[in-house]
């Protein structure tokens, strides 16, 4: 019963909305001294968290040997896109007041905004091609296209790193998690454990359950 609930997509769908609901609640409460700063930071932080969660699916699948993790990946990726779009929308409206000349100047002149903008732009094709139909239509090219998630995640961490005034401790945490997630893949590539198929082959020949672990 509990396992079924945990495995049901709708539970994770609702959980993923909690950051938004929390922000709405805090805004409604009216206790935030700088509410615009809070929702800007919060939406950006959660976009990054969901990006990293999306990237955690493959290592989780490989470590646990359970391919069921895959069913959550699309939703997590789309939530990263959702929070990133909120983040950008808040910037356009409440920070720049739709002053397009200032926005263009900002994107060109300020490296942290340039990389953030680039990350969001690269997310758009991934969001558009996230449907099953698109997956079928693009075939092998779909997987190739969706490798864009790696540069996107790096750009997102750099965006956070460069906007911080002085105390880098928070962006460092995200950089470390990203390094771990990408490092896992590098290791897997180096040792040749790229996918489920190969891993199963290895498993068939080896008495150890998880040769990569």
């Amino acid at each position: 019963m509990l396992l079924r609930l945990l495995q049901s997509g709708s539970l994770w769908f609702v959980l993923s909305l909690l950051p938004l609901l929390r922000a709405v609640f805090l805004l409604w409460q009216g206790e935030l001294v700088n509410p615009v700063e809070f929702i800007t930071r919060s939406s950006g932080t959660w976009a990054l968290v969901f990006l990293l969660l999306t990237l955690a699916i493959t290592p989780l699948r490989q470590m646990s040997g359970w391919s069921g993790w895959l069913q959550y990946r699309r939703m997590l990726g789309l939530y990263a896109f959702f929070y990133a779009v909120l983040h950008f929308g808040i910037y356009l409206w409440l920070d720049q007041l739709f002053d397009w000349a200032a926005i263009v100047r900002d994107i060109i002149e300020r490296p942290f905004i340039t990389v953030g903008m680039l990350a969001l732009l690269l997310l758009i094709p991934l969001a558009i091609t996230s449907t099953k139909a698109m997956m079928r239509r693009l075939k092998r090219r779909w997987g190739l296209l969706h490798r864009l998630i790696y540069p996107i995640a790096i750009l997102a961490v750099v965006h956070f790193w460069w906007l911080v005034k002085k105390d880098l401790s928070e962006p460092m945490i995200y950089a470390a998690v990203l390094a771990l997630l990408l490092g896992w893949r590098c290791r897997a590539w180096l040792f040749g454990f790229t996918g489920r198929l190969k891993q199963q082959n290895v498993r068939a020949h080896s008495p150890r359950r998880d040769p990569a672990g």
Partner: peptide, 19 residues
Amino acid sequence: VAHPRWSQATERRIGEFLK
């Protein structure tokens, strides 16, 4: 004179909605 990473042309007065 902009800060190298952000503009100083506008500010958010705490308690106000628009800059």
